[in-house]
Nucleic acid binder design. Sequence first.
DNA 1: ATACTGCTACCGAACGATCGGTCGGTGCAA
DNA 2: TTGCACCGACCGATCGTTCGGTAGCAGTAT
Lengths: 230, 230
Amino acid sequence: MENFAQRPEGPAGRPASIGRMPTVKRDTYTPDSLLSVAVRVFNERGYDGTSMEHLSKAAGISKSSIYHHVRGKEELLRRGISRALDGLFAVLEEVPAREGRAVERLEHVTRRTVEVLMAELPYVTLLLRVRGNTETELWAMSRRREFDQRVAELVKQAAAEGDLRSDVDARLATRLLFGMINSIAEWYRPDRVAHNGAAGGDSSASGGSNTSAEVAEAVVRTAFAGLRTS
Amino acid sequence: MENFAQRPEGPAGRPASIGRMPTVKRDTYTPDSLLSVAVRVFNERGYDGTSMEHLSKAAGISKSSIYHHVRGKEELLRRGISRALDGLFAVLEEVPAREGRAVERLEHVTRRTVEVLMAELPYVTLLLRVRGNTETELWAMSRRREFDQRVAELVKQAAAEGDLRSDVDARLATRLLFGMINSIAEWYRPDRVAHNGAAGGDSSASGGSNTSAEVAEAVVRTAFAGLRTS
DNA sequence: ATACTGCTACCGAACGATCGGTCGGTGCAA
DNA sequence: TTGCACCGACCGATCGTTCGGTAGCAGTAT
């Protein structure tokens, strides 16, 4: 009833029939290329609002063919969420997130989290919208909470070291910080510049700055100017 | 399969059979008292993830009885969203939102928006999660965009008057501000103190401050310290 | 008092449609 | 000739909604 779509495309969707290269993109779907289609539709219609029929139309293959690549709808959800979580947790392992003054580590994590969110936008968006209806979703929420708590500890530590203003509760500050960061998923669109969806504004250019590093810088500046002491 | 619930309760859910008082809370459901149950379930499971069976179980009446009070599932959504929008738009009509320096009006709107969000939490939460699958949802998104744009204009005006820092784009600043405000719906719980759901922290007391005015104050302080000049 | 009427708030059963998922294939390249 | 990518037809379950009731009560005529 609505938007159709051609076959995979992926990174340069050429038929790779020249020479037999098993690791290279094929003309048919792989679990991963199908996932990217599915996640896009999940984000457009919501996971519960997306039927396998919707997915098959968007992927350009029949409903039953989807089951050739993945076990079912919930596996697509799990795979998509996993990818987001992997990216986020990797940030915490980076050296600048583990060494130095807490407020500096917090700033690094903030900046990198924004960058990962924008780089893996559809997957992180999917993660952020999970409601907890199934076991998969409960697992996702639990993992996400784990990540949030790791950051919350950084905030507390930075506050204890006197680098964050003391008139705003550390937990509340963490929540507001995440609110800012996560809201990026509501309006940022990698191409075009953002057609909107959440916070105001018409659809003309957004000040020209739209690389992930630039947005990350603006978030860090805005948030930390509000949070830092003096 | 899960949580049951008794009848209405409402504001002091007594049988009002003494004397015949047409405007007073009855022992049975009204469209509004049913709405409050429905909106709660919508927020727990997501609108698409909520079946009429879920609603009937939560309300303690049969599925078919729901149709005695409302036209159907989508009317419940529309009513819930309307209530949220009414509260938000009313803020823009308040005198301090219409008179004075732009940055002061912006600050007032921010504070009051936070307060309305917390006072009408379930309804605003419902509004914030709409995806745009049906005509009702598209209407909700359009109205919400309208509200956001009104605030965005305030931000631009305040920036033009030199009261907001110039190194962060006005549109981006608006989006980050809304991100902060709207994220409250992810963790604030009117009773108990917030069991979490989004940003970090364990479930012990959140520094004691949890009245809507206090949270609003913290948001305004954090956001505006980051946004304001000097 | 009793019987009848009309109305409100509810119910169980069932509707066609759609849900996620299964099955037995088919065409085609290696 | 094997196996991969795909298909249409179909499964039981569940979806939102409709339908024909019915118990209980207020008002009224008897």
